[in-house]
Design a protein around this nucleic acid. Structure first.
Lengths: 284, 284
DNA sequence: AAATGTCGTTCCATTATTTGGAACATAGTT
DNA sequence: AACTATGTTCCAAATAATGGAACGACATTT
């Protein structure tokens, strides 16, 4: 589609589909217009600082007119907002949609009592997360003390390779799937103890598979440790995890062991509930 | 586009744009494919119970093939998820997008310290809301006690006519804009004291404009009262509101007066902050 | 077991929408 | 005033979406 205009004079008729092999390495299904619009939205949503029109233009390499209309559509739909200084921000309609997504998420609502119970049993911060490609998205969070806002994490995404939940989820993947995803991970050494190569990660995953417990030993943020367990399986279609997080100084060996047991117990309880509440409808 | 197939034999060339008058009563700008996709997403997100393919088909009155591809695209993009029982739910990618929208929302972050201060001064639940067409969307919430989940309201929408914040925001609208929106309101009598006609509402808005304070006297939910004030103006482009909510039995006259003052003070403080933090960039 | 109905999926010529390039507009700078 | 970077509009050409029908998979009825 790029710079080919000069050469197509001879064959203006559209090529029939069987010529196709050129698009071997493309994504499976293009989602067409929707995908392009979301590319813009994602860029706006994930930008570290507010983007102006030209910033987006340069990052996406699209014609001005096209991008302009795409953004106009996004604004019209309330997915993007135009700031007074001509920068763009994601729109509050997203909040509304997400509120529905959150309350309707059956996995989250099934897990909720167990997440709460784990929080009450440990008194520490408990996270519930779900895998999305090569990230963990936090579905829920019970904060230890209400100093930080509860929202701080729900809906946010973190890397898989340096979080307790993330590693627990990776350990649930079958080998081929795991390899495919690990290849796409971009390792960053967040702290001294971050597992910063695929090799280190894979050998840690072996350990996690054996014990059923995953640890974050200050691998993502200095001073923060966590204990996590995976939930679900690749076959079941749900791959998630639950974790207890606390400052490193507050944790001693005895508590660690206790938490491990509680976290695993919670994970198994959630799995059991899922089977009884979702399985029947699926299998009957 | 409907049943015209037989008649267009003679003019296959596309009509030039100046013929346009046929589309007089259409919406301003059609957002094309994006709008259609969001129609489906909205339906799935706002349905009281999980929808299956055919449910959506009947509600949207579209050809099967078309709808099928639209949903497939939404799923491919992670905006919709397919449950094991073949029903659809909004996807967790929405959570991720919304988390960004929330943290990047400049109005919300400017207001946050004032919302928190109001919460601490009153000890009651404080809401921050923003107008969206004929609804109020809650941007933030500080709960009185942490019994209910904090998420319960953020991102959710309520009617304008029967909530304290909603009425406060309506009172900020210029007359023509107000009329246009009130016309589209569908009044429901949630409680005995709900203002259930446009007349009742408009005369209440007069009162709110005079005093600068809006009350919800158990108009939305029995036993729940609130005191609210509007923030911003139609001209400034921000129309929002802040409120203190409490069970009716807990409120006496003295507190009510105190809250009114505090709420108005918070609203004015937020407006001042907005001017100093957003205005400059805009005007300089 | 066969027949019927419902539901979800696939296909493809027709039709409508998006695209891309350029021209036009509007600040902000030298 | 000229220059630059930015935002907006336009339209033929390229592309994607549509709509109808046919297909397959199940479930229910005869």
């Amino acid at each position: 589609m790029e710079r080919q205009r000069e050469t197509i004079e001879l064959s203006k008729a559209r090529q029939p589909a069987e010529i196709g092999p050129a698009r071997l390495d493309r994504q499976e299904h293009s989602t067409g217009t929707l995908g392009k619009a979301l590319e813009v939205l994602d860029l706006i949503a994930h930008a570290p600082k507010p983007l102006r029109f030209t910033d987006i233009l340069h990052q996406l390499n699209q014609p001005r007119g096209t991008l302009h209309r795409q953004i106009a559509n996004l604004i019209e739909e309330g997915l993007v907002e135009l700031n007074p200084d001509h920068s763009y921000a994601p729109g509050i309609r997203l909040l509304n949609l997400a509120a529905r997504a959150w309350s309707k998420n059956s996995f989250r609502s099934i897990a909720e009592p167990h997440v709460r119970a784990l929080h009450e049993a440990t008194g520490e911060t408990v996270h519930l997360g779900q895998v999305t490609d090569i990230q963990v998205v936090y579905l829920d969070k019970f904060e230890s003390i209400q100093t930080v806002r509860m929202h701080s994490q729900v809906g946010n995404a973190s890397p898989l390779y340096c979080t307790g939940i993330g590693k627990a989820m990776l350990a649930l993947l079958p080998e081929d799937e795991l390899d495919a995803r690990v290849k796409r991970i971009e390792f960053n050494r967040h702290t001294q103890s971050t597992l910063y190569t695929a090799e280190l990660l894979l050998s840690e995953l072996d350990e996690i598979r054996r014990t059923g417990i995953s640890h974050d030993r200050e691998e993502h943020e200095p001073g923060i440790r966590c204990v996590a367990a995976g939930i679900g399986s690749f076959q079941s279609g749900t791959i998630a995890g639950i974790s207890v997080t606390a400052p490193a100084f507050r944790i001693d060996e005895e508590m660690l062991v206790a938490w491990e047991k509680l976290v695993v117990k919670a994970a198994r309880a959630i799995e059991a509930d899922m089977k009884s509440k979702l399985g029947p409808r699926h299998q009957e």
